[in-house]
Design a protein around this nucleic acid. Structure first.
Lengths: 230, 230
DNA sequence: CAGGGTGTACCGCGTTTGTGGTACACCCTG
DNA sequence: CAGGGTGTACCACAAACGCGGTACACCCTG
């Protein structure tokens, strides 16, 4: 079978040579090209149609993040693995947004590098654990409240706002829960009350917000900042 | 220095024994306890205060996902690494939502397992590449592609904004309607289709956003700007 | 103390939503 | 042309929700 075509973009001459050397002993991977900058990135990918690209982030001229966007645009099926020393969050997310599917720190060992190239081609996303953690943290930010029936340490200091909307503190809490996407049952469990009581509060909320479904209430609350506390 | 305290939850006796055996030869990790089920998970973590927990997903009684929530609630600093054979998406996201910071497939080698335990304690998120890929795919969904290409002279055609979210154009429309608080009937009327078709599209939305109710979908969409057109 | 607001709880009833199927017609793309 | 994705539509069943009512125990405040 034909080896996997790999193109490398890495401005550091020593490191680029190391990579070339490394893959010279990897029969199933063929480095078809290696560039010290990304000026010709579009031509490079259209010409070589590589399965995988190893992309350094810090490069003069077009940097690796922008270049990644170009690669994915010119050849969507090409998998891009970022290679960097920095763990800067913004960089990471920009790269991932632009379509990178792997993200390795340069301190990764040679074996790991080689294996990562294979993995990304097989549909995986090799990622240094430190990077993965940052992605997960972001993931958590955007994912509210697990639905386990457990006491939630909630400090609603929102009394003033509550008054502004006419919602009672309790209703405010329930509204927050609604916005988190919880069902009556889950809210009941969370607050140790019966689902009927939840219903009562929710009826109060509907009356005061002039809505008549969960969906409207959530939409209203989020659009007006009544809940969702970003 | 004191070794890292590890607690294992794994119902398969053979595999649990293998793990015990494995860590017996790992001086910097001490398995303080290993259980075949999660019935006593809360007590276990409060008693042992482990730095790391290895948690199987498929277990009788309380499953690993639910147990993870309990662990994080009882001991927030404890890091939980999921261990599973399945690559089911919902499982993965539930576990991560509930606070797991690592996610390994059981086919991972012994060295990888040991290293993962160390890494998760050092602040990383060891993750099998196949898992990482799924997380990234989800990540992409929620990121309405702001290509950083400030310097990009080529004006990367953003033709497919809708595709960027992974939602089809139709699903995008339906999502907008949901955010407006419309019911199935109203959406059906608005788009001149049957309520069943609305349901189909909404199912597609739920699947892609990993939610399972109108409330969650609306909340998700608004928090991420997937809809609500600001 | 009487009355209003709040938080709690229960009941019933009809509607909406969620889940899991099957089906077919289109349009692509390999 | 076979196969995958999309958009359409239908069916059946269970769970969740919305609406109406009643009830009682608080804690205020007039």
């Amino acid at each position: 079978m034909t080896p996997l075509r790999l193109v490398i973009f890495e401005d550091n001459n020593d490191f680029r040579e190391s990579l070339l050397h490394l893959f010279r002993f990897t029969p199933d991977v063929e480095v078809v090209a290696a560039y010290p900058d990304c000026s010709g990135v579009r031509n490079a990918v259209t010409q070589w149609k590589p399965e995988v690209v190893l992309m350094d982030i810090d490069m003069p001229g077009l940097n690796g993040i922008e270049a990644t966007a170009v690669v994915k645009e010119a050849s969507p099926t090409t998998q891009v693995v970022m290679l960097t020393v920095s763990e800067e969050e913004d960089r990471i997310f920009q790269a991932l947004r632009n379509g990178a599917t792997g993200y390795l720190l340069k301190k990764s060992g040679p074996d790991e590098l080689v294996e990562s190239v294979r993995l990304v081609h097989k549909g995986g996303s090799p990622m240094s654990p430190a990077i993965a953690r940052k992605v997960l943290q972001f993931f958590h930010l955007t994912q509210a409240t697990p639905q386990t029936a457990a006491a939630a340490p909630k400090t609603v200091e929102t009394d003033d706002d509550a008054l502004a909307t006419g919602l009672t503190p309790r209703e405010q809490e329930i509204l927050e829960a609604l916005v988190d996407g919880l069902s009556y049952k889950m809210i009941a469990a969370k607050h140790f009350i019966s689902t009927d009581t939840v219903k009562n509060h929710i009826q109060g909320i509907y009356r005061k917000l002039h809505v008549n479904s969960k969906g409207e209430a959530i939409s209203f609350a989020l659009k007006r900042g009544l809940a969702g506390n970003r």
